[in-house]
Nucleic acid binder design. Structure first.
Length: 972
RNA sequence: GCGGGGGUUGCCAAGCCAGGUCAAAGGCGCAGGGCUCAGGACCCUGUCCCGUAGGGGUUCGUGGGUUCAAAUCCCACCCCCCGCACCA
């Protein structure tokens, strides 16, 4: 086969669609509307086939609704807000080799173009153009008149309105907030700013204040409840310490800790420098137990871990236990250390099932630890901490917390010590060390005056739940995750100091952060059309957006104020204002919002929250689809695996429709789907096949001929397929639709052709029947593979565009129980015959089929009815049957069959019973009609008789085995 | 840890909510046959085990239970994946 020119096919139809403006949607009060949105792309890279899945599902949904008569709007914008673009542009301008390689090698951007991308806006514009081209090339039916970016000045104005509204209505709070921070850049760092791209984890480190001579020795710990087991505290003898005034107290901490305090808003004044050894052998007082414990040396203590001083709990901390052993086995030049160390013994404070009173000792033994620098200590510690936390109980040594679980004891100790001023806490990076791309160690910095959106508000949560409860969530399995997210969301920082975006209207130092400026933008699509260049009236506001007052947005989106007043204030004509307001009321709310599943716990939940705050109930979102990802040949797509195929390259390589189907065909919505080349080529072949078959059926609608049972079977199957595809599409079970159209229906058509035989017999209706099948196929394929569908449609000789045609309607008149029953007899018989031939190894010369006798059919029907209406006891049924004199005359066989058929009927699935009750094809005739077919299949003579016939040829007496739907078979 | 999703016959993947046509759709792979000069494509057949008559046996993460009947319902356990934020 000559290589199929996908590009030509795509161009051809895309041009026609553009010409016919099939994607452009304006309000039409005579038709119901359907509003589809998908999460707009972030243009810091080309899109890949993973992105294609979400947008293809959204597109299929939009196209499906168009075909069902909805005035469907599917718009698209671009999200410029945030730091990644900013960080990438910066890296590029610093000629970072890693990013240059990604851009040139994976994204295929010519090296000459890189210079033009060194400014964030221009990088965004570049990828925006690329993404948009890709979306057009793959055939998404987007109304591009409504395109915008979040860096547009009027969009900024819109977001300012949104945030001012939130602030005025009490949804914004202010506070402090810890962030990962690069002291060199003086900026917060995100994943993209960090070497190796790790995510910084910030946690609380508790500082327990041990004391000596009014000087505080704050020890950092994650387990404050172990304070009862403290035998000493550790400092690192090889480290620099300082005595400093921290806030209003005298503290001794490591040199490194000073920086931490400074970043976390503590006042710091260094007084004297000390070495670790200066601190040794002193005594400090445990603030909980008031006992004095010594300061001892340990090499494992890291100076940048909290304060550089830690408590020693040898009974329960493997590091401490090992460090103590190291000390005890060491030889000393003076006697002072020896005396102190000799006296130290572990204290048991936590009882843990399956361990001795000193679990740390058990772990050290189990892990065969050789010294306090042994790397296995980390794992031993992790294991033990987790076990004690979940299963440990405080012992008598931990009064008054005896008997409490470790978990609750910790809470209690924190509360008690903090309230008495004996403990405080600092933030710490839990996965140290983290290095900024500039080479500087990342620290935790506490940002003052941080602005938050208060998702913790109970009233707000209630409304969000209310909204969610009424929404369609696809797949439904996702709903639990939404409920959980709504419950756990708290205050969320909504502004930061760097990156692109909108300035916070009341505090212009801050830029509204990316997940906060993207929650109500679906409303902006309505406005975006009016802001497009040709609407001169808006151009002046683009130059000076501040001139557009809040009252304009209040009117347009909330319906507040009057047209007259807003018109007076803005100078926009009442006609345009009215029209925009009507357009908003017409399209809003969004009927279905599409995204991948990763946005459930953030964006999609915020989306619900904000809509319930800003809008009245009738404008709350109606549905969300959160689909799974795309895997490349079984692997997650990643830059390091170099298995990312940019979307446009993939379209060029596989064709738009094969790619669309390829990302939808192998898994249901909820599952991650796998894409690979074999799949793509298989789909290509299928689609090409459909086009070439359509060619053969061109204009074959001609004369109406009487339909045979087989024809009616095919049309009945088609009707079933339409029904199934329709329900599947309504639930966006796109994989199933692909299956039905591309495989099930195809198989039925193949069976139909096979039954008819290779030669066209005089006047059979196959072309008309197949023509109908193909018409429907083209329509059902249109949302998924629109180019191929339109090509089929045209090739079949239809007028107009299939993307504008109607989705096929199931029609009960085509549902033909008898035809389906007849065909199932033929299939069953074919199978059984084959099975016998296989089991016996016979070569058939002649095959005789015996249809079941009339009396069996009548018993069978009675059994079906009995089982359906009133599943009485089998005995009664048999009695009833045998009360019929005709049947009684048959005797035992009748009773036996009554028993058997009754059992079959009661155990049958309801739908099957339903389909057979009252339906009784003439089996002998069915088999006779199919005998040509059987002859071809088995290359044998075919005879058909009915059990009980007068002139029956039945040398082996097989006819008595005949049953309804199961003719007896005799092979010679 | 908390929350969510999942474990199906060589691989991928339906079925599970509404138990019975389930040895379990479909695709891929593999084997045989047809077509062809040949290969590819395409078509047919087979692909858990046994079987000279349409049958039987053993299967759906593991172990129990409910039922006439369990991949499907209930209980317990094991394993895998994802999210847990200020980042798009």
């Amino acid at each position: 086969m000559a290589k199929f020119n996908w590009r030509a096919l795509e161009r051809k139809w895309q041009k026609k669609w553009a010409w016919a403006k099939v994607d452009e949607t304006d309000p039409d009060p005579r038709r119901p509307k359907y509003f589809v949105t998908a999460a707009y792309p972030y243009p810091n890279s080309p899109q890949h086939i993973g992105h294609a899945r979400t947008y293809t599902i959204a597109d299929a949904n939009a196209r499906f609704h168009r075909m069902r008569g909805f005035n469907t709007l599917y718009p698209m914008g671009f999200h410029y807000t945030g730091t990644p673009l900013y960080a990438m542009a910066k890296r590029l301008s610093q000629n970072d080799p890693e990013i240059i390689e990604t851009f040139t090698k994976i994204y295929g951007i010519p090296a000459a173009k890189l210079d033009g991308l060194k400014e964030p806006r221009r990088m965004a514009d570049y990828f925006r153009d690329d993404i948009k081209k890709g979306m057009i090339e793959i055939g998404f039916s987007v109304d591009w008149r409504r395109e915008f970016t979040t860096a547009d000045r009027l969009y900024n104005r819109f977001i300012q309105w949104h945030f001012r509204w939130l602030n005025q209505h009490g949804f914004i709070t202010k506070g402090t907030h810890p962030v990962a921070w690069c002291p060199n850049d003086k900026n917060p760092v995100g994943v993209v700013d960090i070497q190796g791209g790790v995510e910084p984890e910030i946690g609380d480190s508790h500082l327990v204040k041990f004391e000596s001579d009014r000087t505080t020795y704050p020890t950092s710990t994650l387990r404050p409840e172990t304070i009862f087991g403290v035998t000493n505290i550790w400092v690192n003898p090889n480290t620099r310490y300082v005595k400093a005034q921290i806030d209003s107290e005298e503290w001794v901490v490591s040199r490194e800790a000073i920086e931490t305090f400074e970043h976390q808003n503590h006042s710091v004044r260094i007084e004297t420098e000390l070495s670790g050894t200066d601190l040794l052998w002193k005594e400090v007082v445990n603030p909980m137990t008031n006992t004095a414990v010594p300061v001892l040396p340990a090499d494992f203590v890291e100076p940048d871990n909290g304060t550089g001083i830690v408590m020693s709990v040898p009974g329960h901390a493997p590091y401490d236990y090992q460090a103590l052993i190291d000390l005890k086995t060491r030889s000393w030049t003076s006697s002072q250390p020896e005396d102190i160390i000799r006296k130290i013994e572990p204290i048991s404070i936590i009882k843990l099932e399956g361990f001795s009173e000193f679990p740390a000792a058990d772990m050290v033994k189990k892990f065969e630890i050789s010294g306090q620098k042994d790397p296995r200590l980390a794992q031993a510690t992790k294991d033990l901490y987790s076990k004690e936390y979940h299963n440990g109980v405080m012992t008598d040594n931990a009064k008054p917390y005896t008997g409490l679980s470790v978990e609750s004891a910790r809470q209690a100790v924190i509360k008690d010590l903090t309230s008495s001023g004996k403990m405080t806490s600092i933030y710490e990076l839990l996965n140290r060390p983290i290095t900024c791309r500039c080479g500087t160690r990342v620290v935790v910095h506490v940002v003052d005056n941080q602005w938050f959106i208060n998702y913790g508000d109970e009233e707000w949560k209630k409304k969000a739940h209310q909204c969610l409860d009424k929404m369609t969530i696809l797949p439904e399995e996702r709903r639990g995750e939404f409920n959980y997210t709504i419950d756990w969301l708290r205050e969320r920082a909504c502004a930061r100091k760097v990156g692109l975006g909108t300035r916070l209207p009341w505090d212009m130092d801050w830029t509204i952060e990316a997940l906060s400026d993207s929650v109500v933008y679906m409303a902006y699509y309505v406005l975006a059309k009016y802001l497009a260049k040709e609407w001169v009236i808006f151009k002046k506001f683009e130059k000076d957006p501040q001139k557009l007052p809040d009252s304009f947005f209040d009117y347009l989106f909330l319906g507040q104020g009057s047209t007259e007043a807003v018109s007076r204030e803005t100078g926009i004509s009442k006609r345009i204002l009215d029209s925009a307001r009507r357009e908003f009321s017409y399209f809003y709310p969004v009927d279905m919002r599409h995204s991948a599943k990763d946005l459930v716990s953030n964006h999609l939940s915020f989306y619900i929250f904000h809509h319930t705050a800003l809008f009245t109930q009738d404008q709350w979102p109606r549905g969300i689809v959160a689909n799974g990802f795309v895997l490349m040949a079984g692997d997650k797509m990643s830059k390091s695996l170099e298995n990312i195929i940019p979307l446009r390259q993939a379209v060029a390589k596989f064709g738009a429709d094969p790619l669309r189907i390829g990302t939808l065909a192998t898994a249901e919505l909820n599952q991650d789907t796998d894409f690979n080349e074999t799949l793509a080529t298989t789909i290509q072949d299928r689609l090409i096949g459909l086009i070439s078959q359509s060619r053969k059926l061109r204009r074959k609608m001609a004369a109406k001929r009487a339909y045979s049972t087989l024809d009616r079977w095919m049309l009945s199957r088609l009707n079933t397929a339409i029904q199934a595809a329709t329900t599947a599409m309504e639930r966006l079970r796109v994989r199933e639709v692909v299956n039905i159209v591309l495989y099930h229906l195809e198989n039925d058509a193949a069976w139909y052709q096979r039954r008819l035989g290779p030669k066209k017999t005089k006047g059979d209706a196959r072309n008309q029947v197949l023509r109908q099948v193909f018409d429907s196929k083209a329509r059902m394929l249109a949302p998924l593979a629109p180019h191929v569908a339109d090509e089929m449609w045209f090739t079949l000789g239809n007028k107009g565009l299939v993307v504008r045609a109607e989705w096929p309607k199931p029609d009960d008149r085509f549902h033909d129980k008898t035809a389906e029953a007849s065909e199932s007899i033929v299939k069953q018989t074919l199978e059984d015959t084959g099975e016998i031939l296989k089991a016996t190894g016979l070569t058939a010369k002649s095959i005789t089929y015996y249809a079941a006798g009339q009396w069996k059919l009548s018993i069978y029907q009675k059994a079906l009815t009995a089982a359906q209406s009133d599943p009485k006891r089998q005995g009664e049924f048999i009695k009833e049957i045998m009360s019929d004199p005709k049947l009684r005359a048959i005797g035992k066989p009748a009773a036996d069959y009554a028993a058997k058929s009754y059992q079959q009927a009661t155990q049958m699935k309801e739908e099957l019973r339903e389909s057979r009750v009252g339906v009784q094809p003439n089996e002998k005739k069915v088999l006779e009609d199919a005998s040509d077919f059987f002859r071809r299949e088995f290359r044998a003579e075919i005879h058909v008789s009915q059990e009980g016939e007068k002139e029956i040829r039945d040398p082996k007496g097989r006819s008595r085995f005949a049953e309804p739907y199961r003719p007896a078979i005799f092979i010679e």
